[in-house]
Design a protein around this nucleic acid. Structure first.
Length: 637
DNA sequence: ATAGGGTTAG
């Protein structure tokens, strides 16, 4: 139950009035002010008895009985004390049967009539709600605690913040709470808030992290390498290279020396963004500074080299790693095999992994997963499946990813019925089947256009309580547009725009592509304009889909218009578009514009598709023999 | 006393 759903919390007076009848707080308060401890044995014995009875009631989840027992204690001077209340909360919260509303009533009663909650009270409440997974309520008590001039203990705070990292909404709550604590100038050090900085940076909120970073700095919290590294991670992840480099400068001028983790983070994101040269520059500069790269650093570079198909460099790097005294670990194998798989060299990946397995190298579940992927790509899904079933004997437990990979293998082999049967009958790990499992089979069913199968997957998904996401609905968009049910498809898209999950550029592209390919070019353009107006995500591919279509229709005005628009959005047309445009211009005999376009292609850093240019030029040359010279110049320069 | 690497679906 959520706090917000309890209207009473907004009306504490109404609550307390009710409370006065059930537990006589005012009397208990008056008694506690009489500071005489009646030390008679009977009283003491009675009190101890009440105490244990009260705690038993609380532990069994019977709060009303526990409160009534607590109420009897008021016959003993100074009782019930704050310790009794704390014990009550502690027992009750772990009873497994907690009524939030009743508990809050007790809390409000304490605030109004005593005994006042102390540090322990708050920590018990905080930890109790955290264990129950009621984060919002934990924050409520954390706020209450700071309002009462107390700070959560370091452990409670860390636990609270750590639990908040799982969802975006709670992360922002954590941010707000940290900001509040920081502004109060409490004596927390950087390491308390660094996890929040990291969590913000890991989910693409580096600007928010930066605000927190400066807030900390302004309030005298000294940053350490870890704080700076978090921000560099955030900037790298979001490809904010200008910010990243200037922040690195700032870090150095603040007297904080980047370490191997800092540099590794930068190298990773440079590699991910295709900036291999810069990544190697960072590698060089760290070696100059005497900050030695470790296996993590090298593994990242190995993967990047595989992704860019630079096998020779990989070999050299592997030798270097060996010379520096490192031995490959499961991450190395995964980087190698995963990278090789991504560039489509499944045979090489297969040979490599076979060696890894036959030589008894240390592997883990991810290496297995890549091996499964590899086997499936080589039409050996059944072999993958039997290995999946036997791998546990080797002490490695398959994950949902393992199952999903094999599932995908069966779908690839067009054994959809088999895949569906496995989806329903697998002994899934705790986390499965997940949305990926369903999307795997759903995608195959949609590509086949098999409505019965689609419905069966969706039904089973609902039965398992797995919510469809953008990808699931994108599959349905593919199905609807493949079978030509465009208006229904558009209705689905409109539904998604209004209610979520918001369609991605991939979703739109599938729809627009189908429209264009079936001749509904102007309809596609209309929809494109509406998407654009709504500020939803479109990408390079969207433009290229429309451009191809308009090029076919020879609508040069719209082509020019779209290309201009792309430049404004800092998107590059793909080579096909350039080639087609040049070829179209050539065919019209407009060679000077063709040349201009060709030069701009070069200026954009795109390797011009000379093949395509040449092909169109050949055609043109036959048509316009008198322009031979100009055309020849274009082919060779 | 906080931090960095590899795998699946549109």
């Amino acid at each position: 139950m959520r706090f917000a759903s309890i209207p009473a919390i907004n009306y504490p007076h109404r609550l307390t009035r009710k409370l006065r009848f059930s537990v006589n707080y005012s009397t208990s308060c008056a008694l506690s002010s009489v500071n005489i401890i009646q030390d008679s044995n009977t009283h003491n014995w009675k009190y101890l008895d009440l105490q244990s009875r009260m705690q038993n009631y609380a532990a069994s989840g019977d709060l009303p009985e526990a409160l009534e027992t607590l109420n009897f204690m008021k016959n003993v001077a100074g009782k019930p004390s704050i310790y009794d209340y704390n014990a009550l909360f502690h027992r009750y919260l772990s009873s497994g049967n907690v009524s939030l509303e009743q508990l809050v009533q007790v809390y409000i009663g304490m605030k109004n009539f005593g005994p006042s909650p102390n540090r322990t009270t708050f920590n018990i409440l905080l930890n109790g709600f955290l264990s129950l997974g009621y984060l919002r309520d934990a924050y409520f008590f954390a706020e209450e605690m700071t309002k009462s001039g107390m700070n959560p203990s370091f452990t409670s705070l860390s636990k609270l913040l750590k639990s908040s990292m799982k969802s975006a909404r709670m992360l922002e709550e954590a941010y707000r709470f940290c900001a509040k604590l920081i502004s109060k100038n409490l004596n927390f050090q950087a390491y308390v808030f660094n996890p929040v900085l990291w969590a913000l940076c890991k989910c693409g909120k580096s600007s928010l992290a930066l605000q927190l970073f400066y807030m900390m700095k302004k309030n005298g919290i000294a940053h350490n390498v870890c704080s700076y590294t978090a921000l560099l991670y955030g900037f790298g992840r979001e490809c904010l290279w200008v910010d990243l480099y200037s922040f690195l400068d700032q870090m150095r001028s603040d007297g904080c020396k980047p370490n191997v983790v800092t540099y590794t983070v930068i190298i990773k994101f440079l590699c991910d963004d295709g900036r291999i040269v810069e990544a190697f520059e960072i590698l060089k500069s760290m070696e100059i500074e005497g900050c030695d790269p470790d296996l993590v650093t090298y593994n990242i570079i190995i993967r990047a080299l595989c992704l860019y198909d630079r096998a020779c460099d990989v070999l050299e790097l592997l030798q270097l790693i060996h010379r520096r005294g490192f031995s490959p670990d499961p991450y190395t194998y995964a980087a190698l095999a995963g990278g090789i798989m991504k560039v489509g060299k499944t045979k090489i990946a297969y040979e490599l992994l076979r060696k890894v397995f036959t030589r008894n190298c240390t592997v883990d579940v991810v290496v297995y997963n890549i091996y499964f992927h590899c086997l499936c790509r080589n039409n050996r899904s059944r072999e993958a499946f039997s290995l999946l079933k036997s791998m546990t004997k080797g002490g490695i437990v398959p994950t949902t990813v393992s199952y999903n990979t094999v599932l995908r293998g069966f779908c690839r082999d067009n054994e959809i019925q088999h895949a569906l049967k496995l989806l329903e009958c697998f002994e899934w790990p705790e986390s499965g089947p997940d949305v990926v499992s369903f999307n795997t089979v759903l995608s195959a069913a949609c590509k086949l256009g098999d409505l019965v199968l689609i419905q069966r997957v969706l039904q089973y998904m609902e039965c398992k309580g797995v919510e469809p996401d953008v990808r699931s609905l994108t599959c349905l968009v593919r199905y609807l547009s493949t079978v030509g049910r465009y208006s229904e498809c558009w209705r689905l898209l409109e539904y998604m725009i209004c209610n979520g999950p918001v369609p991605s550029s991939v979703t739109f592209n599938i729809f627009l592509d189908k429209l264009c390919r079936n001749g509904f070019t102007s309809k596609a353009y209309q929809i494109f304009e509406r998407i654009q107006k709504a500020g939803l995500s479109l990408d390079r591919k969207t433009y290229n889909i429309l451009l191809r279509s308009f090029l076919r229709k020879r609508d040069i005005n719209l082509v020019e218009c779209l290309i201009q628009d792309m430049y404004k959005q800092r998107l590059d047309p793909d080579l096909f578009i350039y080639g087609s445009k040049i070829s179209g211009l050539c065919q019209e005999g407009n060679i000077s514009t063709a040349l201009f376009t060709r030069d701009r292609t070069l200026g954009n850093g795109l390797t011009p598709s000379m093949e395509m240019c040449n092909r169109s030029l050949k055609t043109v040359m036959h048509k316009n023999k008198h322009r031979d010279m100009t055309c020849h110049g274009m082919v060779t320069t």
